[in-house]
Design a protein around this nucleic acid. Structure first.
Lengths: 172, 172
DNA sequence: TTATATGCAAATTGTTTGCAAGTAT
DNA sequence: ATACTTGCAAACAATTTGCATATAA
């Protein structure tokens, strides 16, 4: 089982990730700007840098990974942890990002892209995260919520197991 | 939204919880005893007290709640956090308990009772946790896992929203 | 000009660990 | 007698917060 630090490395770029369209990003920029205007918050170099870096990177990124990416860029060297936490909280508040906790102790973030509604398959061997969509499950969820009188706001559906390539590797 | 401390209080006895049969508990006692025997571990007053308290309490209990319950009992006053953590880890290792993280920063535990396979509906207003079962979702999960070549070991399916009574209360 | 933002370090929270003393086997 | 356990306190890791300084508006 990979250590926490290893997982932080592993979860990087993943070909299975949905790539958001420019239109989507533009929409999110507007949502964020409006949220900040309404609350009297300010647009700073750091916030813009963090937000754009987040937009450009794969989903399921952790604070640590994101900070690392931010610091790779010019102007980003001096950005601190706290600012990344505060900015991601901002994105979460205005609905641009979702927090995900996959149980390895790290909080990961992903774009709240409604056009790519998905859940997750997680490999316990290599830490790989695969997205899946299944509309039939979505409707069963609605049915269950209705049965219990719930008004749903969100859900989390994760399946844990061993991915195909790790199974193949085990056979050796 | 309830604070962390409030949630810790809220999650107490819940009529929706499945009550394990004596046979189930007896089975788990055996499983635990065998696991401990195999590993050369010892049965102590504290372990027995913690385990039986856990067996007797509602599911979704946090370490803090469990320790509180343990300390209410005679012989339990001096039990420390570490021992509860270590004992619950033991129960988790041998498959008698499952860890659950509902994203409020607390780890909760429940009996791994196979006869009550369920997932969770969580009210974001009052923190109530309701269990549900839906075999049609289970089979869709298998289908998805197969589609991606995964061998599943477990899953987590949680739906968040507002429960019926909180919705009714809002109407006032 | 003035309220908000930043970076740092210190504080907090949940959890784990080292260790001396206690105890099951 | 020997190894496992315990409770405590200290260590940890992720996250949050206080505060002096910097900066957007």
């Amino acid at each position: 089982m990979p250590s926490r630090a290893e997982r932080n490395r592993i979860g990087g770029p993943n070909p299975a990730h949905h790539v958001p369209s420019q239109a989507t990003l533009e929409h999110f920029r507007t949502v964020l700007a409006e949220h900040m205007a309404k609350k009297g918050l300010r647009s700073t170099d750091q916030r813009r840098l963090i937000v754009e870096t987040f937009f450009g990177k794969a989903d399921h990124i952790s604070i640590e990974q994101l900070l690392e990416e931010v610091r790779k860029q010019e102007n980003g060297q001096h950005v601190g942890y706290a600012t990344v936490y505060r900015t991601l909280k901002l994105l979460t508040e205005c609905g641009v990002a979702h927090e995900r906790k996959f149980g390895d102790g790290l909080t990961r973030y992903e774009l709240a892209d409604d056009t790519s509604h998905h859940d997750h398959l997680i490999c316990l061997e290599c830490g790989d995260i695969i997205e899946f969509e299944e509309p039939r499950i979505e409707s069963l969820q609605d049915e269950i919520a209705q049965r219990h009188g719930f008004r749903l706001t969100s859900h989390k559906h994760e399946m844990y197991g061993v991915c195909a390539s790790c199974q193949a590797r085990e056979k050796n």
